[in-house]
Design a protein around this nucleic acid. Structure first.
Lengths: 251, 251
DNA sequence: TCTTGACCTTGCCGTAACGGCAACCCGTAG
DNA sequence: CTACGGGTTGCCGTTACGGCAAGGTCAAGA
């Protein structure tokens, strides 16, 4: 079944103006009724809109969201996992803001140090990441002026985007070798891990082994990843080998 | 001590550009160093900036924030209490979004109903308020198109602003009568409560007796409110009487 | 004293993500 | 045919800054 623009707007809690805008910029392309040329939206568009709403939660620019949603599924999933991390972090931040606000509202006014007054607001800032590749990215774009959400993707130049593709390509080549040798206790396997991690860090503001392992579990559980990595390496063991590598080295 | 613009920007996690802009529009006026005409910010401005950051959390327009911060303390406090409610609500919404996202990420993709896919995103929408005065406001501005935060204050026309002042004025007149009679079990006291509640609803998207009582406690605990209401009614019992009225009728 | 670098100023232009509106078309009911 | 609710495109405007150019200030070092 298909929704009209009004129906989808009401369903999703956005304006029709927004949906038209998203269609115009190619972010959420609509199909057209052949009789009257009205926009129509199917389940594919519904699901894409949901992803858009998740990705725009913390200010990711729309152009970036489009890039993500036009990328392979693994990239999309990584980006959504990233959003998951941010939701968790934002929830903690709101707790902290609540504490701060209660102190401000307290009798007699504000007795906090000036630093403490703003600590919760600043938690949005980038957290340090000590991996070399990650540090390079941050050094390039700076810390003080960079909002994590905005610069994450929009800051990726063409060269960086190519570097990201290159990283994945190298990782896949080595993954093939590991599949053939069957040795996940090897320098090649370790390098697969490092490259996969670096690949993730093009899109993740902070890295956590927990999230990395979460992604690995997704690789084994979701057949779409099995198919993606099988197509890339020529082996239907690719996703499970990659997941095993992540499980082993993400410590 | 005074901060330079760089120091305050770093302290608060905002850009110097933002601080200049806020000074230019009168939202956060800076003092000036007499030697070099550089901007200087004292504790008063620090605290005002903190309030600005709280109020802008969910998209309150800056012009509105300025209106709030230039209003009497009771209005400011009510607005900050309102933000407190929103932080609580937003935290719940993030929990809900997390659940939704986990379902989306789950193996095999998205098995939710279309309605469920967007339920958490739509929680930002206005919740029904069944008080007559509140309904009037909502009917005037519509529901589907109205973002709660944006229309809360910016939607107040000159006439509405005057109505708000008028409401407080009437409430204060009746409060004086109750102070003199000493009867909080009376129609006049009940009307004080109703008018105070209506006054709050100019600025609160949703009303809760809990929040109203929280404000009442603030009225008795914080000497600034004692002074404000004493000045308005000529009696230093005003704040405690008002608080007692709220305690009695906010059920 | 001069130079340099960090900090500051104002003024101006531009941007992202829409909101709003005008002019017009479509389909259905009265 | 008219009216109303739904839809279209095109255009202008808004808000909250980001960015940059041109110029001033101050302190340290040569």
């Amino acid at each position: 079944m298909a929704y009209t623009i009004q129906q989808l707007a009401a369903l999703a809690g956005v304006s029709t103006r927004t949906l038209r805008y998203y269609d115009t910029i190619g972010l959420l392309p609509a199909q057209r009724n052949s009789t009257n040329d009205y926009r129509e939206y199917t389940t594919v568009q519904v699901d894409r809109l949901q992803r858009i709403l998740f990705l725009r939660l913390f200010g990711v620019p729309l152009a970036t969201i489009q890039k993500i949603l036009d990328a392979p599924l693994a990239t999309q999933q990584a980006a959504l996992l990233d959003q998951r991390q941010r939701i968790l972090a934002e929830r903690d931040r709101l707790d902290h803001l609540l504490t701060t606000l209660d102190k401000t509202l307290k009798r007699g006014g504000n007795h906090m140090s000036d630093t403490e007054k703003f600590a919760a607001f600043k938690e949005k800032q980038i957290k340090e990441n000590d991996v070399q590749f990650g540090s390079e990215i941050r050094e390039k774009y700076g810390e003080e002026k960079v909002s994590a959400a905005n610069k994450q993707y929009a800051g990726l130049s063409e060269a960086d985007y190519n570097a990201m593709q290159d990283t994945e390509s190298k990782m896949l080549t080595l993954l093939k070798a590991v599949i053939q040798s069957g040795q996940i206790d090897s320098p090649e396997a370790q390098q697969v891990f490092s490259l996969h991690k670096a690949w993730l860090q093009f899109t993740w503001p902070t890295y956590s082994t927990e999230a990395h392992k979460g992604l690995a579990q997704m690789y084994t559980a979701d057949p779409r990843f099995g198919q993606y990595y099988a197509a890339k390496t020529g082996s239907d063991k690719a996703a499970s080998v990659l997941a095993a590598i992540i499980e082993k080295y993400a410590v």
